[in-house]
Design a protein around this nucleic acid. Sequence first.
DNA 1: TTGAAAGCGCTAACAT
DNA 2: ATGTTAGCGCTTTCAA
Lengths: 342, 342
Amino acid sequence: MPRAKSSVTIADVAREAGVSTATVSRVINENAPVSAATAMRVRAAIERLNYRPSAAARGLASRRTHLIGLLAEEISAPFFAPILRGIEKGAREAGLGLLIHCTQGTPAANSGYRRPLGPHNTDGILVFAGGLQEEELVYLTSLEFPVVLLHRSPPDSLDIPAVTVENKRGARELVRHLIEVHGYRRIAFLRGPEGHEDSYWREQGYREALAAADIPIEPQLLAYGGFDQKIAQQAVTAWLEQGVKPDAIFAGDDEAATGTIMALQAAGLRVPEDVAVVGFDDVYLAHPLMPPLTTVHVPIEAVGREGVRELVRLIAGGEPEPLTLLPTELVIRRSCGCQEEA
Amino acid sequence: MPRAKSSVTIADVAREAGVSTATVSRVINENAPVSAATAMRVRAAIERLNYRPSAAARGLASRRTHLIGLLAEEISAPFFAPILRGIEKGAREAGLGLLIHCTQGTPAANSGYRRPLGPHNTDGILVFAGGLQEEELVYLTSLEFPVVLLHRSPPDSLDIPAVTVENKRGARELVRHLIEVHGYRRIAFLRGPEGHEDSYWREQGYREALAAADIPIEPQLLAYGGFDQKIAQQAVTAWLEQGVKPDAIFAGDDEAATGTIMALQAAGLRVPEDVAVVGFDDVYLAHPLMPPLTTVHVPIEAVGREGVRELVRLIAGGEPEPLTLLPTELVIRRSCGCQEEA
DNA sequence: TTGAAAGCGCTAACAT
DNA sequence: ATGTTAGCGCTTTCAA
């Protein structure tokens, strides 16, 4: 019969088992020697009373919440789900709870003493991209509070560990493939959002690949795609209307690649016969009705997992790993002009 | 200058402001009268010291964590992201933190005194579909602990508030459209996973619509689609190989509709000219390269939002609303045979 | 290996 | 309107 309402405390268990509360605590936390017989009695008492330790009391006494936080700007598929899955899995395996909070462009709420996530309620936090302003990062660092950045590098002079992916290398290989295998020379690039690091490095990779092939950058082949299907569609449509017709379009990400393909198809152009299109992220391959897209695989879930791993290390007082750069991988399908194998 | 490491406590603030800790507490919680002048001094002291109340101490003393939990089986796009967004938004607006945990088929971890979510660390929880075993629901209910079910109805004899959508009505209207507007009579249905409530009610809606039109159920037109693209594809392929060719296929959900369309196209059949296809959920409309799918819109994000609203009501001691049934809405596009308007 | 007891930082009576 | 103080339920020295 479960006891109703008023909760069972460690003192109840201690009484039931005929030991002190300290001993019960030791059995629960397994952090001090307890004789097998005693432990058994305690566990039986816990079971019998259906005792569950109060997280608040534990946290107050031990100064450990066993919680980690995730701060993001917004919950947006398709990128958010896999990274969250990685984080949740990592947290679960480390025996930590996961507290999540989105800023949703409400940085105002994140001020004063009402902070959503921080030392007052977690043992450490994960910050996804722009989930936290630099000022607060500075503050948390001064407290030596564990923070790990995801898909974002630390502000200058702050050495906060970051986990991200090889955007530049992935983009470079992708564009190199277009040049070397297909002989394309007029390769357009659709930029992602301003200030978005993934976007920045992908552009660098694009530039490096062109430079390596001695192909000059044509400014008119650079446009804003915003990592967004609609924006990319408009950008490509605008090109077409101006008579700009590249050999290939590197859309910046898969979302933009979708918009690119739509714009091309709407103009009666075939992909890849008339214009090749490549994306980045490899999140839409799941969608079978899209022309098989050549893209760069990004290990999104792994970023979450590695982020937790690093955070756990910091919490344990271990040496920080300044930068974890996860590998990206070229995924050749059909939209670049290759014949996909069956 | 922020103080490093050792955290600022309410006593520090009280001293700095020249008041008692009780007064500081009153200012923070705004739950008792404090003179404007005093409040100002306290706030200034809080600001100066960069004080942030310890969640653990607050929780221990007040027996409120200001946290709600979300329990799910797994984090799977595309359904999870919107519902999470609704929940997170609701929690944020209510000033509550959100703790999430997935069971991932590890019910074992959810036993003994190491429960991920419950009265020991939250003020109430949201259970998405099969996120929690019946036994634990019974236990939590006996404690009068606030629980709200999402996309799942309570076990017999347990009156736990639930929030879900009008699956039956949506399916009925959808099939009625196929019958009345298009005159289809051989309408196939692809079932979702066994024990999945959405699936169950959609089938009921399908049956009701057929019954209302005096069309007998043809057992061979019922198959298992598993709310899964691959499984649906196989099921439809199997039909085709057996020479079963329905007028229309209600795929159970959009995911299965995708597989259905693939199977049809692979067999050289056109949608909707040769076979009409309809889905449910309206999650893929975002994907522009798919033939515009006639489906039923499910307000996924609203389920999350309403779930939080109900949970907040329970936590505040309000009257429970046993069942919140959110409306679904028929979305006519092209895959049923209609001419979509521009 | 075990127990006693002093906090952890806050809230909520109860006084005044 | 404000202060005093007794806990909240645990962990963690310190002793034994």
